[in-house]
Amino acid sequence: MDLNEKVITTHKLTKRFGDFVATNEITFDVYKGEIFGFLGANGAGKTTAMRMLCGLSTPSSGEASIAGYDIYKETEKVKAHIGYMSQKFSLYEDLTVMENIRLFGGIYGMSNAYIKSKSEALIQQLGMEKEVKKLVGSLPLGWKQKLAFSVAVFHEPKIVFLDEPTGGVDPITRRQFWDLIYEAADRGITIFVTTHYMDEAEYCNRISMMVDGYIKALDSPTRLKQQYSAETMDEVFFELARGAQRKGD
């Protein structure tokens, strides 16, 4: 983590849907190589905030820059420098492992030779040599998630956004998944992750807690626990989310 380089900065970023304010003037910075946990109850506004940062949705007001690019004016440049893995598994299930890697590599403008050498290394790292020519739809969920993450960081983005990446996978696979995350962070890729698992929250460098569209707390897990005199992140979460007015979705 490099405290001298901010890769995400937001200032009073707001999204309204009619009268409903999904995210309300959120302001925060994320540093290069940081693992930034984005927590909150269902309906707190996490996904909306993330979609704005990825250029999938236009903010109602406020400012934000991603990897140094303005999210209003330089959307295309923002998109070239981020990776994204959504809640829904969104690789093409009717393409093989290698075809998916090639497709997304190609879309990000990587050369064929580079895609070839890099994908070979990736396949080896994931231990998927036998699955290269299998359709992605036929793989077990845990493998799919690891593959989806690897594809999301394949073009070496500055930041990767992970929206509840480990939903529905077993603890061992989750652990392996986080190994991949650490490795990417070591390479200097900033990780912006939402999760509902509090053990995963402990793995993050810093955590922000969203309640009803506001950021209610933002600090490292250790200091948050001290601040709320809690034993675990679970207790911190309960303490903060208790006051929420909005019902989850």
């Binding site: 999938l56 998109k79 981020i82 959504s86 829904k88 690789l91 093409y92 299930e93 879309i107 956004f161």
Partner: peptide, 14 residues
């Protein structure tokens, strides 16, 4: 429906 369009939308694909 399957959400892949969103994955394409976050890429530089025009």
């Amino acid at each position: 429906e399957i959400g892949t369009i969103e994955q394409i939308n976050v890429t530089p694909v025009k």
